[in-house]
């Protein structure tokens, strides 16, 4: 037969390259699927059924829900919100994700502090809220997590990608701390980012639930099991 040609060489090289690429992240194929992705499918398929019932009840009902997005009375409404906002929420992901990462890092930096966990302590709550509201240019509210066993430690001002951010710290009786991180979220063009449903960011360095509402990002971070963190985030959302 004929001597090897350039194209034979090429074919071999491409085959080798393909094999190398198939070695990339091969372990991911055999890992168990993370719980939060399974839940995403479950929730999204439930909320789809849920929102369709609303659509059948009349388009008016759906538009009222969108217009008065504040009237959350039950857990099911989280689902309605994300079903309707799903298209809009997509484009927000990188900005919101970076925000959640900042929140997790801020938590990891300040929550272990014994002497200086906060700049302004809970004893001066009114001053704290006024100060941070002025710096973030938004009237802030400190959620009351007493029912969940957490009391306010205090808060601090932090620098963010596009300006000031606030961190409120809470602590339970055992000294377990969670932090609520708040800041304006804008994309590169300065347009405020779209609202998102609750998102879970696992780990790195601590897990958090984050969401975007009216141009502001919120992230609740803490070394807690996912359900506990979700219950706290839910309580925070309902009060803000």
């Amino acid at each position: 037969m004929s001597a090897p040609t350039d194209s034979d060489d090429d074919a071999l090289r491409w085959a080798a390259q393909r094999e190398a690429l198939r070695g990339l992240h091969r372990d991911v194929l055999h890992e168990p699927v993370p719980e939060h992705l399974l839940e995403a499918v479950e929730q999204a398929s439930n909320q789809r059924a849920w929102s369709r019932r609303w659509m059948q009840a009349g388009a008016l009902a759906a538009s009222v829900l969108v217009a008065f997005g504040a009237g959350w009375v039950g857990h099911g409404q989280w689902n309605a919100r994300s079903a309707i906002g799903i298209q809009a929420a997509r484009a927000t992901a990188p900005v919101a994700l970076a925000f959640a990462h900042d929140a997790a890092v801020a938590h990891a930096v300040y929550s272990p502090e014994k002497r200086h966990p906060v700049e302004v302590a809970a004893a001066e709550q009114q001053h704290l809220v006024q100060w941070l509201s002025r710096r973030l240019d938004k009237p802030l509210k400190v959620p009351d997590l007493g029912a969940q066993g957490y009391s306010l430690v205090g808060g601090r001002l932090l620098p963010g990608a596009a300006g000031a951010r606030a961190q409120f710290m809470f602590e339970d009786g055992a000294g377990q701390r969670v932090t609520l991180y708040i800041g304006a979220l804008a994309d590169r063009n300065g347009a405020s980012t779209q609202e998102t449903a609750f998102r879970f960011a696992s780990g790195d360095p601590v897990p958090s639930f984050y969401w975007v509402d009216q141009g502001f990002g919120y992230a609740l971070a803490g070394k807690l099991p996912r359900e506990k963190l979700l219950a706290l985030a839910d309580a925070v959302y309902k009060q803000l």
């Binding site: 690429l21 194929l29 890992e31 992705l37 929730q43 990462h101 960011a201 696992s202």
Partner: peptide
Amino acid sequence: IPALRRYARALTGDAWTADDLVQDTLER
């Protein structure tokens, strides 16, 4: 999901970004 995760990870180079992309995809 496993195939989507692997592709997303190779595409983005980052586990966290990749799983977020997968989550968005699944919801959509």
